[in-house]
Simulated assay, not measured.
Amino acid sequence: MSVNSCALVMNQTPSVCTDEMTFVYRPNYQSLYISLELIIAVLAVIGNLLVCLVITRTKKLRTVTNYFLLSLAVADILVGLVAIPCAVLTDLGRPHHNLPLCLLMLSVLMVLTQSSILSLLAVAAERYMAILLPFQYQRLMSHRVACLALLLTWSLAVLSGCVPFIDWQKQPENSVFCTFACVIDMSFMVYSNFFCFLLLPLIAMFVIYARIFLIIRGQVRRMCQARTRTISSGSDEGIMDTPDQRPSIDAIFTVTNPSDPHKVIKALRSRRKMQKANSLFLLLFLFAVCWIPIHVINCIAFFCPTCDVPMSLTLVAILLSHANSAVNPLLYAYRMRSFRRALIAMWRAVWSCKHN
């Protein structure tokens, strides 16, 4: 989702956009760059298609949280099918002499970026309600509400991506090359696309997850204290004689009296909440790590036009932003046990059908 490949031509002026800039613009490692882009596109499409198949074909995984992850996977598939090819074309300054088509391509890149960040924001909000309001959660976050939230996220993404069309007539008529720096105002890319549409949602999500972890930490502390009192009441010595004897997280979630079904269910739910929160926070963290560098380069280009950013660094930042779409499925398979089991079961079913 290279909405910021404009950094490749960050020091261009409108007059440069009309010149023969082929040898100035194209990177020295063009073949390597395009090859890596295509590899990322293939991995993103295959990996996220598997995510969509696993979620849609496994009834147990059709949860509200996974609906938002499904939306993220769809956006990542479109990254591989549409955004990366468009990004490669725009990085080559194409299409030439076709401003409407150029704006459409650049808008698609921004729409997919916004749909991803809004899907992550929806996941964070859903997890926050699940933990903060567990009794009202089923009523507040029904499947119908989830579908409406998905419709809202994609609608907002389309609206934000269509902003460049508002003042398209202000663009230079003789602009030849289709690049962000030549076609879209860099002030929009920095103040609107980065500060408003990316940075603010990221800050909000980090605050939400910080609140989630504080709530879970309080639950863990209460469970630890209850477990300590239970064990201490059955022995002459407590387990907390020294600070070094504090129980581990696994020990805290281990139910002392398995015969009490209420305690068993409560411990399992708390453990699952913590594991899911950790996995989703890691998903958010990787998104931030992959996307912040290219936006920082855009900010440098905008606030310090005379500063020279190495071309190799810019290309790495662009590839990193695209790689986020290919990394997400690996994160699901590695961190989410239910997804991993469903994926293995699906592969076994396919394998058995093939041999039968």
Score class of each variant (00 low, 15 high):
Phe285Lys: 07
Ser232Pro: 03
Ala210Ser: 15
Thr113Ser: 13
Arg227Pro: 03
Asn356Ser: 10
Ala349Trp: 05
Leu282Asn: 07
Leu280Arg: 00
Gln171Arg: 13
Asn193Ser: 15
Ile215Gly: 01
Arg335Pro: 04
Ala277Phe: 09
Ser192Thr: 14
Ser175Pro: 05
Ala73Phe: 08
Ala342Gly: 11
Leu330Asn: 01
Ser187Gln: 14
Ala87Met: 14
Leu70Thr: 01
Phe206Gly: 11
Leu200His: 01
Val289Asp: 01
Arg57Trp: 05
Cys86Val: 10
Ser312Trp: 10
Ala146Cys: 15
Ile184Gln: 09
Leu200Arg: 01
Cys86Gln: 08
Pro14Phe: 00
Ser248Lys: 00
Leu36Trp: 06
Ile55Phe: 03
Pro100Glu: 00
Leu49Arg: 04
Val220Phe: 01
Ile77Ala: 02
Asp241Ser: 13
Leu78Thr: 00
Val74Gly: 02
Asp241Trp: 09
Ile77Pro: 02
Phe68Cys: 04
Arg335Gln: 15
Ala342Met: 06
Asn174Met: 12
Ala226His: 06
Ala277Ile: 10
Tyr128Asp: 14
Val264Lys: 09
Ser5Cys: 08
Trp168Lys: 10
Ala122Phe: 03
Asp19Gly: 07
Tyr33Ser: 11
Arg139Glu: 06
Cys102Arg: 02
Ser115Ala: 14
Thr58Cys: 03
Val190Tyr: 09
Thr56Ala: 01
Ile300Leu: 14
Ala251Cys: 07
Val316Ala: 13
Cys52Thr: 01
Trp291Gln: 10
Arg227Glu: 05
Arg337Ser: 13
Phe68Lys: 01
Leu53Val: 06
Ser2Glu: 11
Cys17Thr: 02
Arg269Lys: 12
Val3His: 09
Ser279Cys: 13
Pro243Thr: 04
Met205Trp: 04
Ser2His: 00
Asn28Phe: 10
Ala44His: 07
Phe206Ser: 12
Asp236Gln: 06
Leu49Cys: 13
Ser15Val: 12
Arg144Leu: 10
Ile212Gln: 05
Asp308Lys: 14
Phe197Met: 15
Ala146Gln: 10
Arg139Pro: 02
Asn48Trp: 03
Asn278Ile: 15
His322Met: 11
Gly161Asp: 13
Met240Phe: 07
Cys353Leu: 14
Pro258Phe: 06
Val74Thr: 06
Ala75Cys: 15
Ile249Val: 11
Leu38Phe: 10
Asp250Trp: 05
His355Glu: 15
Asn298His: 09
Ile231Tyr: 02
Leu282Ile: 11
Lys273Gly: 14
Gln219Asn: 13
Leu120Val: 05
Val316Gly: 03
Pro201Lys: 00
Ser115Asn: 11
Thr22Phe: 08
Ser352His: 10
Arg94Asn: 08
Val9Glu: 03
Tyr334Ser: 09
Arg246His: 03
Lys263Asn: 07
Tyr128Arg: 11
Asp76Pro: 02
Lys59Glu: 06
Asn66Trp: 05
Asn4Arg: 04
